[in-house]
Amino acid sequence: MTIIAARRYVPDPTGRSAARIPGPLALDDRFSAVPDGAFDWIGLCEPSLEEMTQVASHYGLHPLAVEDALNPQQMPKLDQYQKHLFVVARTATLEPGETLAYGQTAFFLGADFIISVRFGSSRAHLGLRDKLEADPERLAEGADYVLHAVLDFIVDGYLPIMERLEAVAHAMEESAIDVFPEQQTIRRIFRLRRQLRRFERIIGPMEEVCQRLAESHVALIDPTARIWFRDVLDHVRRAMARLRGLKETLAAIVETASLLEQHRQGEMTRQLAAWAGLLAVPTAVAGIYGMNFEYIPELKWHYGYFFVWGVILTICGGLYWRFRRIGWL
């Protein structure tokens, strides 16, 4: 069976902490009756239908929830059944090439058990389990506290992704100020925007799930535990705010680079127009005196050549001063 870990946590006589049964539970122990005040925490990784059916038959899991747990393409959601809650969360990792890969973790939360079914995520919960077992007083609060801890673990995985993508976006933003982005960079920007749009569609419903857990009356969630889910909700909202800000940054990169390029092209156009105006003066004068007519004014004047050059230089000097004054040169 693809059970990563299976533990039973029983309260101590004082009721202030929870102690786990030493070592992994054997199959017969794991499916024995749960004592009062205790709960089982079972972690499954990509189980088969037969394995999932065996667990479901013992804990009384609803067939529709089992079917959804085995489908790794579910959106985040929270469903209430008669004997348990069913929660779906989506995990995300940033792979090489700035590609986001998604996984799914489904939870069955009952009065005396919590079962996690993980698909596609490389972040196992073993380290989190050890951390919780090191704080038995918190663990004694029950299976709903474990649900909060795992959801918080999943949501915290979004923040490093945002940080890495923000670093990429800021680097592209700085380079776009100096030169217009190359075609390869523009493709990269649009790939990132497409990835973020999908990220928002997939992770966005997590905010609704956490809000229901934090603010609504949900069976099997102790009212005193809502404050923990409010913390998860706050983390989800931070991640979503950073995601939307990153989308705006990527859109602004293209827009800003386009405006800067238009400005640079406008400067070049003005400079070319100014030099064309300066060259037009001698061209026009030379064109007039290059006509093959015998009776052109001052054609046989001894100082006509120097006079024409003086006129050309005076006009060109005035135009140059004027263009410099208005910033065209």
Rank of each mutant, 00 (worst) to 15 (best):
G103Y: 06
G103S: 14
G103V: 09
G103T: 10
Q104L: 05
Q104P: 07
Q104Y: 04
Q104R: 04
Q104H: 06
T105E: 07
T105A: 12
A106F: 02
A106L: 03
F107A: 04
F108W: 02
F108M: 04
L109S: 01
L109V: 05
L109I: 05
L109G: 04
L109A: 03
G110V: 03
G110A: 00
G110K: 01
A111K: 11
A111F: 06
D112Q: 08
D112L: 05
D112T: 06
D112W: 02
D112V: 05
D112H: 06
F113I: 04
F113K: 01
F113A: 00
F113Q: 01
F113G: 00
I114D: 03
I114Y: 00
I114P: 00
I114R: 01
I114K: 02
I115Q: 02
I115A: 02
I115N: 02
I115Y: 00
S116T: 07
S116A: 08
S116V: 01
S116E: 04
S116Y: 05
S116F: 02
S116H: 01
S116K: 01
V117E: 02
V117D: 01
R118C: 09
R118N: 13
F119T: 12
F119K: 09
F119V: 12
F119E: 14
F119D: 10
F119S: 12
G120V: 15
G120P: 15
G120S: 08
S121W: 09
S121L: 10
S121F: 08
S121V: 09
S122A: 13
S122M: 11
S122L: 10
S122I: 09
S122G: 10
R123S: 13
R123I: 09
R123L: 14
A124G: 12
H125W: 12
H125D: 10
H125M: 10
H125A: 10
H125T: 13
H125G: 06
L126K: 09
L126R: 11
G127P: 08
G127F: 08
G127H: 14
G127C: 12
G127N: 14
L128T: 02
L128H: 05
R129F: 07
R129Q: 10
R129I: 06
D130C: 09
D130I: 10
D130M: 14
K131Q: 15
K131M: 14
K131Y: 12
K131I: 11
L132D: 06
L132Q: 07
E133I: 13
E133R: 15
E133W: 10
A134Y: 13
A134S: 15
A134R: 15
D135I: 07
D135S: 13
D135F: 07
D135G: 08
